[in-house]
Simulated assay, not measured.
Amino acid sequence: MRRATSRNLCLSLLPAPSPERSDAPAAAVDGPRRQLALQFAAVLAVLSLAWPYYGIRGEALPWPQTAFAIGTAALLLATLSRQPWWWRVVHALFTPLAWGVSLLQIDPAWFLLGFMLLLLVYRGALSGQIPLYFSSRQTVDALAALTRDRHDLRFLDLGAGIGSIVQPLAVARPDARFTGIENAPATWLVGRVRTAATANCAWRWGDLWQADLAAYDVVYAFLSPAPMAALWEKVVREMRPGSLFISNSFAVPGVTVTHQVDVGDRRHSRLFCYRV
């Protein structure tokens, strides 16, 4: 039984095989689960050796050394399972930092409050590996230029944040229709207030994976590398021929870009444009 459990745990840490057709919500959940499995495996490996050793000697477990040992083990497992570099850093520092913070004796209620506040703003990072990015004014200008010749424009922003794209575009193009979809409560509320007075801008609460893309001429996204392959499958499946998909900063892997635009802002943003 122990051998079978160890084998299943090791298999869960390996990179998942690429399916013929991506299941985006399942893929979004699989990432956090894999990282939790890595941390759990590191804790289990270190404590299974340290507790018997110090128990036999009748000594207390040295938590500073144990925390750093767990961080080292987690870093090794993350490296062997080919996790991105930022996850390796997180794994290496998580347990030592957790031990260090525990010495401050902060009331746990403050951590719960902090987590809830972060969840209100960064829900996408937890549920779909999609952090919150704010698009620059230069990006708005570049999108306005890209869509200037499209009459009866129907524009959709997936993961619209606080409306920093759709609101100014809707003001500049009263003849077009703009829609923003957001699922983080705090940013959705800010965007709702911001777009309330803009008649040609629809602000929606929802999951971008449930949005029907067929009704839109242009779909814009500023997400992360993680969901791009699955999102492209959705774009090809739902968007009409001749429509345009624009991704800010993150190209679709394995797909030739139709053209790209250097925005020229401080972040050196680049728009990758794909004609369906």
Rank of each mutant, 00 (worst) to 15 (best):
A4E: 07
Q210M: 04
S48W: 01
P62F: 10
G100Y: 14
R240P: 01
P168R: 06
P108K: 05
G161V: 08
G100S: 15
T139N: 03
W209R: 15
Y274R: 01
S136R: 05
G191R: 00
R275N: 04
T95W: 00
V219G: 00
L93C: 12
R267D: 12
L93P: 03
V263C: 02
L11H: 12
R192E: 05
A73L: 12
R123P: 03
R266D: 15
V263S: 00
Q35W: 14
Y122A: 11
A184R: 04
A28Y: 11
T95L: 09
H91W: 13
F40H: 10
P241D: 06
V255N: 01
A142I: 05
S48R: 12
P253H: 08
Q129R: 05
L97G: 09
I70K: 04
E59T: 13
P64I: 10
T79K: 02
F250G: 02
D157E: 05
P253K: 12
A24T: 13
A28C: 07
P225Y: 15
P15C: 11
H268W: 13
R240N: 09
V140Q: 10
V101W: 15
S136E: 07
R137Y: 15
E238D: 15
Q138Y: 10
L244H: 01
D149W: 02
A37H: 14
D141A: 11
A45E: 05
W86C: 11
G58E: 14
A199I: 14
R270M: 08
R148F: 14
G254W: 15
A4F: 07
P108N: 09
